[in-house]
Simulated scan of single mutants.
Amino acid sequence: MTTQTVTLTGLRAVYGSGNRRVTALDGVTTGFDSGTFTAVMGPSGSGKSTLLHCAAGLDRPAEGVVTVDGVRLDRLGEDDLTRLRRDRIGFVFQAFNLISTLTAAQNVALPLRLAGRGPSDDEATAALAAVGLADRARHRPSELSGGEQQRVAIARALATRPAVVFADEPTGALDSTASHQVLRLLRGLVDGHGQTVVMVTHDPAAAAYADRVLLLADGRLVDELTGPLTTGEIAARITDLAAEPSC
């Protein structure tokens, strides 16, 4: 039986008030199966990043329920929510967010140190080896390419062995060669290690690496594509979506 690492039920997110009130999510219900790779796409302002932030516990929705690894986030206080994010959720962003004064290995070990664990050198090296960078463990970010920095960020996200990795435009700052390296890495984590990955992207070529593509528009889930998918098929559906009138 397939289990879902993350579930979203009736998710509604609202920002501002009065004439500036914006509904970023409007009753979104979906889930992310364990050991799968899901891409979330949609036009600018469709609610992609809001969905990711609510699913990851970075923002609290106005209504609805988010469950991560069997835990309802709405039932957690801020301290418990912080611990869950630290221990069970990995984050990868467009900006690598590495600390410039630390080596790659030290950056990878940082979440474990913040969790009160004293990680061994072997743990950090193993995480870097998983992303193909064992030989770069002592290099600082300035000595690494953009693609290598993002791979260090992925190793850091994996350091706590999270239930799910959320990636927000992880290839947005990379050239095409580095982008494909990062996407192949994420795909390999799913196929080889059963990792659950949820990625927000605007790029159909990136989304084609996923098992499933969720399409959002005006804060609503309007379509779902399942793989294997080609870049052209995804791009065509995005084009059709952009041409459809808003409800």
Rank of each mutant, 00 (worst) to 15 (best):
L128P: 04
I154D: 05
A126Q: 06
R136S: 13
Q150I: 10
P141N: 05
L144R: 12
T125L: 14
A127T: 00
A127R: 07
R151S: 13
H139Y: 05
A137C: 09
L133F: 09
D135I: 11
G146V: 08
A129P: 00
E148W: 03
R151I: 12
S142V: 12
I154C: 03
S142I: 08
A129K: 09
A157Y: 01
T125Q: 01
A126N: 04
G147W: 05
L144K: 11
R136G: 09
P141W: 03
G147P: 10
L144H: 08
A155L: 10
A127C: 03
V152T: 13
A153M: 08
Q149M: 11
A157C: 13
A155C: 10
R140P: 06
R156M: 12
R138T: 15
L158P: 05
T125R: 15
A134D: 13
T125K: 02
Q150K: 07
G146Q: 07
L144F: 01
Q149N: 10
A137G: 05
R136C: 09
T125G: 04
L133R: 01
L128I: 11
A129E: 13
S145M: 14
A157Q: 12
R140V: 09
A137I: 10
A153K: 09
T125C: 01
A124T: 01
A124S: 08
D135C: 09
R156Q: 07
H139N: 03
E143W: 03
G147D: 11
A153F: 05
S142D: 14
R156A: 11
L144C: 13
A157D: 10
E143A: 14
A155Y: 06
A137W: 07
A126I: 00
L128N: 00
L158A: 14
A127F: 01
L144V: 12
D135S: 14
A157K: 02
R156D: 07
R156S: 12
Q149H: 06
V152E: 09
R156F: 10
R138E: 15
A127P: 00
A153D: 11
L133N: 01
G146N: 09
E143M: 13
R136V: 09
R138H: 15
A129R: 14
R151T: 07
R136H: 14
A124D: 01
A127D: 02
L144P: 15
E143K: 11
A137Q: 11
R138A: 15
L144Q: 08
I154W: 00
V131I: 09
R151D: 12
A155G: 10
I154H: 01
A127Q: 08
A126L: 03
L158G: 13
I154A: 05
